[in-house]
Amino acid sequence: MKYTLIIQSAPIDHQSSYTALRFARALLEGGHSIERLFFYGAGVHNSTSHSVAPQDELNLPDQWQQFVTEHSLDAVVCIAAAVRRGVINASESGRYGKSGNNLADGFDLSGLGQLVASAVESDRVVTFGAGV
């Protein structure tokens, strides 16, 4: 089946984005496909390239980035939620006159319409980190 996953909570603060990653891996192992990963709300922090973890701890944004790249997945980060939280790519950085950018490779900034379009194409939509 085709799945859309919505990830709404930040790494570190909540377990749910790690649960989402484990679920996503299990989907592919089980022969399902992922139409799109959509990072919304505080979930946008999973797409940063600037997270640093102690050596004996998991770096969840790096894990997401590797997973997305390895499987060439469509990973969209809500642009309105991201720019508010300081997760920006080079073009948004230029637009707003900021000095750097931190959106990891493999992620795209785009609008909520990308979530709706993906859900329309999917058999299942699974939300992680709701109401926390």
Binding site: G41, A80, G113
Partner: peptide, 13 residues
């Protein structure tokens, strides 16, 4: 921010 984000999502849908 969830209430606003839910409203935005309903409008976008």
């Amino acid at each position: 921010s969830q209430a606003r984000e839910a409203t935005d999502l309903a409008l976008a849908t």
